[in-house]
Amino acid sequence: MHPDVSADLTDLETTLTTVEKVLDLDELRRRIDELEHQASDPDLWNDQANAQQVTSELSHAQGELRRAESLRQRLEDMPVHYELAEAEDGETRTTALADADTERVSLRHDIEAMEVKTMLAGEYDARDALVNIRSGAGGVDAADWAQMLMRMYIRWAEKHDYGVEVYDTSYAEEAGLKSATFAVKAPYMYGTLSVEMGTHRLVRISPFDNQGRRQTSFAEVEVLPVVETTDHIDVDENDVRVDVYRSSGPGGQSVNTTDSAVRLTHVPTGIVVTCQNEKSQLQNKAAAMRVLQAKLLERKRQEERAELDALKGDGGSSWGNQMRSYVLHPYQMVKDLRTEFESNNPTAVLDGEIDGFIESGIRWRMNEEGGVD
């Protein structure tokens, strides 16, 4: 085996061993046994919320163990690939070595992707994510851009088999969305998607401009951790104004004929939350209350962070704001302005191929924050 290949495999061995230690595979197997025992209890589904949490955590833990064991097996198979390739002659040897090199590159990518997951150790990182997208400057193009971003995140979630629950979609008059709120439901979604928070900028030839001029549009992405009972975010009913109205879809057409959509206004803070995607007013109010609690939790966290930053005298965290640029004209490029990670295939990115951006974002945040949340 070539010395460079041997050195690379040694490096991968070191990285994977570190990942296995952080994951604590023995503890993971013990937790899987415990969750399987809970999942087999015939009374589990008497409490649906708890049952869903148990089955979701079990599925995630089993998936993590499978991935770790698969990576270990692939790494152990690599020297055999090279030995078999080098035993061949001529063109067959060349092809077999190229195949082994391709598998080694793929293995490195997969090990590094799993390594990134072990960096999610923040207080709320293990939770589901609540994503809020708002169109910014750019008129109808910005509303269209907000809808494109929502599709990008939902396609990304679908590719990974993560659950998505849409709480609210507020359609713009001509096209696209004024705003949308949805949850991505899988362990560690908040830690994963929180690096997507900030302003996303699109440059393209506007499909809404009959003179075919170039247009720059902006959309804001906000990512919040879903609130759990341990957070003690109590909302006084007297502080909340509840308005009900009729749900509407694109172009103003009626989705249903009852006043089932709900708008909650938290009077002390001025936070407004709407939900219209559930079938009943009661369901919409419950979903809107979950979103309001998440926003209040984030507000509390920001206040605590501001106090800490004031004590540290560092002026606060500046990551966020304009963080990624998507250029479709005059050239094709998506570039993260914080990490310098880029792709020259915007079509794939907008179809949900954003893992590279997310992984580099997590590594960047880890370096920025000195390895702590």
Rank of each mutant, 00 (worst) to 15 (best):
D144Y: 02
M119F: 01
R66N: 15
S106L: 15
L75W: 10
A146S: 04
I133K: 02
L65Q: 13
M114F: 06
R74S: 13
M78D: 04
E91L: 11
Q73T: 08
D125S: 14
R93K: 14
N132T: 15
R74K: 14
R127V: 02
R67M: 09
T95C: 15
G90Y: 06
W156V: 04
L120F: 03
I133Q: 10
M119A: 07
Y162P: 03
V105N: 11
A157K: 00
E57H: 03
K117D: 12
E123S: 09
A146H: 01
M119R: 11
G90V: 07
E165A: 13
R127D: 01
R134H: 15
G138I: 06
S70N: 14
A137G: 07
D110P: 05
V80N: 06
R67H: 09
R104D: 08
R127L: 02
R93G: 05
Y162D: 06
A143R: 00
A68H: 06
Y153E: 03
R151C: 09
P79I: 02
L75M: 14
E64F: 02
G63E: 04
T92D: 12
E86P: 01
D141I: 00
V80K: 09
S59L: 08
I111V: 05
R155T: 03
E64P: 03
Y82I: 01
R66H: 15
R72S: 14
E158P: 10
H109C: 08
H81W: 04
A98E: 13
Y82F: 11
M114I: 00
A143S: 14
E91C: 00
E91D: 15
M78V: 08
T94I: 12
H60V: 01
L58I: 10
A87K: 05
A87S: 11
M150P: 05
R66W: 02
D144L: 05
G139Y: 01
I133A: 10
L65F: 09
L71G: 10
R74Q: 15
L84Y: 02
E83F: 03
E69R: 11
R108C: 03
L84M: 05
R151P: 13
